[in-house]
């Protein structure tokens, strides 16, 4: 099976937001980056499918030169090679532009299965995977928590793929679909593995194909302002040493909130 995994590089969870001067994007100089969390699970799922069914795992990422770091990390975890759609504008691009850019670089590869994360931790559109599926002419299913491939039915056959889709409130549903297909992966589908020293060494020699951004891609939305959200509730902040704060909180929970 030829499997693609789309990986986005996003600011770390610890990052404290700082805005650029026009307050329409973040100050990128201040940011440290990591692999988008569900994408790490998508990569792990691809590696497991390769272990079971053979084939190769190709990492696909769109972004400025900096995204090489997550590409190398994915290669170190075991992906075979990578495609990097490189352009400075892709760091802040919307889901339509990213999906079109990835589709152009991926379409000739004829992947059997494309995995993405269900949502990015930065822009959080929850769209890129599904739009990409449509541009690649594949069916999609989203928020996936298990992937079963029946290799005997082969390409193009109905029920080649059976996936477990998460629904709200602890419900799930199995869905059968043909290959090739695109799935958006939910965090927690598997247990992640981390790169070994051997993997890191091996990654240095793996191929990263550079693809250029197609001309004329149109964004579908524009950020006109970015701000720290306003608070809806008046939080009473309790200061002091841990012991003093604990004492005051317990007292207030007992006497003011009557919650203890």
């Amino acid at each position: 099976m030829k499997i693609a995994v789309c990986i986005k590089q996003v600011p770390t969870r610890e990052w404290q937001p700082r805005l650029n001067d026009s307050k329409t994007w973040i100050r990128e100089q201040d940011v440290s980056y990591e692999m988008n969390e569900p994408d790490a699970y998508a990569l792990e799922e691809a590696l497991r499918l390769r272990e079971k069914h053979g084939g190769e795992v190709v990492v696909c990422s769109a972004g400025p030169a900096r995204v090489q770091t997550v590409i190398r990390e994915a290669l170190a975890r075991g992906a075979d090679r990578a495609i990097h759609v490189e352009h400075d504008s892709l760091g802040a691009a919307d889901a339509f532009v990213i999906a079109e850019a990835l589709a152009a670089a991926m379409k000739d590869e004829k992947f059997d299965l494309v995995l993405t994360g269900l949502q990015s931790d930065d822009q959080g559109h929850g769209q890129t995977g599904v739009i990409l599926a449509e541009r690649l002419g594949m069916p999609s299913s989203t928020i996936i928590m298990d992937v079963q491939v029946d290799p005997s039915t082969g390409s193009g056959q109905v029920a080649a793929l059976r996936v477990k889709r998460e629904l709200e409130g602890g419900w799930f549903q199995w869905i059968a679909m043909p290959l090739p297909a695109l799935l958006t992966i939910q965090s927690g589908i598997n247990q992640l593995r981390y790169a070994t020293l051997k993997g890191i060494m091996a990654a240095k020699k793996k191929e990263i194909r550079k693809a250029s951004l197609p001309d004329g891609l149109q964004p579908a939305q524009q950020i006109v302002g970015l701000a720290v959200p306003t608070r809806s509730k008046q939080t009473q902040m309790i200061d002091g040493s841990p012991a003093a704060a604990a004492k005051e909180l317990v007292q207030r929970l007992r006497e003011e909130a009557r919650a203890l």
Binding site: I26, Q221, L226
Partner: peptide, 20 residues
């Protein structure tokens, strides 16, 4: 109209307008 949506895990709120 402009639409407000969370970004960066809710650390920021963006005002966005559709294009096209």
């Amino acid at each position: 109209a402009a639409f407000v949506r969370p970004m960066f895990q809710g650390k920021l709120a963006a005002q966005v307008k559709p294009v096209g």
